[in-house]
């Protein structure tokens, strides 16, 4: 519906502007709070103009929150999730779209079901698996009686253990195993004309060659879109790192931010240092914002799928 009347124009612009203000106001308040001393921040009435303490607060937040180490950890995890996700969803979708086999639909539905079970819902079993990644196999062996059989025959007790707590693998793998990326790729692969696949067959390209030479170059925008989403998603993770990491050398930024705002009970009645917390927030927000800004063009193209 495209209508152009002056009144409608004004109304739509008002709606847009109010939405923008609604979005930017918290950001602005964060910047304001990050640029004052503690006394100015908690003053009533509140200061609505930025102060001159921004750099001081930023440096304090950086050192106090060990943000240097946390940034490195978070970058490693975010990149791990991003690449792991892209590789896995690409290969899974490839198998689902271009090969005909009996298990195609069951596998597709199994993946589909995981969409309804995000990490937050299955966090307890996921933690159990992270504590011992071989637990599912151990359970299978126990239930099928193979453990019993082996111990009866050889006297060896089968006990498999692979602990993922306090490791990058433990942080990354559960975040990689979700279905969204697979769907994005599947939808894209379904638009590839059958004749293109056949032309590649006639040219002698095997499946992997076809994936590498044709599908991956064609899905560059998809990769960019997925990379952006996954980077931001992994960067902002809070609950899972909080749970799986007890060793602070693996801590991630979002968790650290929570610690910058100490609880009243823990500080013995001292006022929380909001100005430092806000300064830390500013630093932590920066990488996802930069990624989105740089990837925006690709990101949009990848999602609307017009680049063909």
């Amino acid at each position: 519906m495209i209508e152009r009347t002056p009144i409608l124009n004004i109304v739509t612009h008002l709606i847009l502007a109010s939405g923008l203000i609604l979005l930017l106001l918290p950001m602005y308040l964060t910047i304001v709070a990050a640029s004052h001393t503690l006394n100015d921040v908690i003053a009533v009435p509140p200061n609505l103009l930025p102060g001159d303490q921004l750099w001081v607060n930023l440096t304090e937040a950086w050192t106090k929150g060990h943000l240097g180490d946390r940034f490195l950890n978070t970058f490693i995890v975010a990149f791990g999730v991003m690449t792991g996700k892209i590789v896995m969803s690409c290969i899974t979708a490839f198998g689902l779209v271009f090969f005909d086999h009996r298990l195609k639909m069951p596998i597709f539905w199994l993946i589909f079901i995981t969409l309804m079970l995000p990490l937050e819902v299955r966090i307890v079993p996921t933690y159990a698996v992270a504590a011992n990644a071989l637990l599912p196999f151990q359970t299978l062996l126990d239930l099928s009686g193979i453990t019993w059989l082996i111990s009866a025959v050889s006297g060896i007790e089968v006990k498999m253990e692979w602990n993922l707590l306090n490791s990058y693998a433990g942080l990354i793998m559960p975040l990689v195993a979700t279905a969204t990326g697979t769907f994005l790729y599947r939808q894209f692969f379904l638009t590839i004309p059958e004749e293109l696949v056949e032309a590649a067959k006639m040219d002698g390209a095997g499946p992997l060659r076809f994936l590498w030479d044709v599908l991956i170059p064609l899905s560059r925008t998809n990769i960019a879109a997925l990379a952006t989403i996954m980077f931001v998603y992994a960067w902002n993770q809070y609950l899972w790192p909080l749970l799986v990491v007890t060793d602070q050398s693996y801590a991630m930024v979002a968790v650290e931010l929570g610690r910058l705002v100490p609880k009243l009970s823990a500080t013995g009645g001292e006022v929380p240092k909001w100005h430092i917390a806000m300064a830390g927030t500013l630093i932590v927000m920066l990488p996802p914002i930069l990624v989105v800004i740089f990837m925006q063009r690709w990101f949009v193209r990848g999602l609307i799928n017009t680049d063909k």
Binding site: P193, E195, L196, E198, A199, A200, K201, M202, D203, G204, D213, V214, P217, L218, K308
Partner: peptide
């Protein structure tokens, strides 16, 4: 396999690699 047969094929929709 198709490429072992010594055949080449021209498709109706050309089927060129767009990239």
């Amino acid at each position: 396999e198709p490429h072992q047969r010594g055949c080449a094929m021209v498709f109706q929709n050309y089927a060129l690699y767009p990239h």
